[in-house]
Amino acid sequence: MADATRTDDLFARARSAVMVGVECDAARIHELKADPTPFSDLVSGRKRAEVRRDDRGYQVGDKLFLCEFDREAQAYSGRQCCARVTHIQRDYGLPDGLVVLSVDVLSTLNVVPAAQEGERADG
């Protein structure tokens, strides 16, 4: 339970920080995990789209709050970004239930998770 609370706190702190200066309706922010390689490609500008399950009612103008998540370690890295959906592709040969979201990255942030903060203080 403590890990879940820490993760919720990390999301809240990071979301507040990364959203500074980004205007949007809070109901249209989608918090999503992102694997390290596609996350890095998105932040660097090499990648301009996200393929996702179409289970959230995505709309043009929505904001994606992406948090880098390492599946092997089962942990968030602390890197986040906020991106705005600029175009949505459904159908046209995509499997049912998938969507391609074209995005513009609005801001990025690197927040050190609480566990790593403790390691730095000790080491």
Rank of each mutant, 00 (worst) to 15 (best):
H87V: 01
S40C: 11
P38V: 04
G45K: 01
R90Q: 12
D96P: 15
G45M: 01
S16K: 15
F11T: 07
D54T: 07
G118M: 10
V85P: 09
A17P: 08
E23L: 12
P38H: 02
D8L: 13
Y76E: 01
L101H: 00
V18H: 02
L66M: 04
A34I: 05
G45E: 00
F65Y: 09
Q89L: 14
P113Q: 05
T108V: 11
S107N: 15
E117L: 12
V111N: 08
Y76G: 10
R52K: 04
A12E: 03
A27F: 10
A34Q: 04
S44L: 07
Q89N: 11
C82Q: 05
R120I: 15
A114T: 03
V22W: 04
K47M: 04
D62L: 06
P38N: 06
A121E: 01
M19K: 12
A114F: 03
S16M: 12
R48T: 09
Y92I: 15
V85I: 14
K63W: 00
L42E: 00
A2M: 08
N110Q: 14
G61I: 02
H87D: 05
R48A: 11
T108G: 11
Y76C: 10
C81T: 11
A2D: 05
R71L: 08
R46Y: 01
D122Q: 07
G21N: 04
A115C: 01
V18S: 04
G21S: 05
V51S: 09
V103R: 01
A27W: 10
S44T: 08
V100R: 06
T7C: 09
Q80F: 15
G78C: 09
E31W: 01
D91F: 06
V111R: 14
D91E: 14
Y58G: 07
V99L: 02
A14I: 04
A73F: 02
L42M: 05
G45Y: 01
F39R: 00
L98T: 08
C82R: 12
H87A: 07
R53F: 10
H87S: 12
R15P: 03
G61C: 05
L64V: 03
A34K: 07
V100G: 02
L42S: 07
Q74H: 05
L109M: 09
D35M: 09
A4L: 09
V60M: 04
V112C: 15
T86V: 13
V112I: 15
R120H: 13
E68Q: 03
A17I: 06
L98Q: 10
A14Q: 05
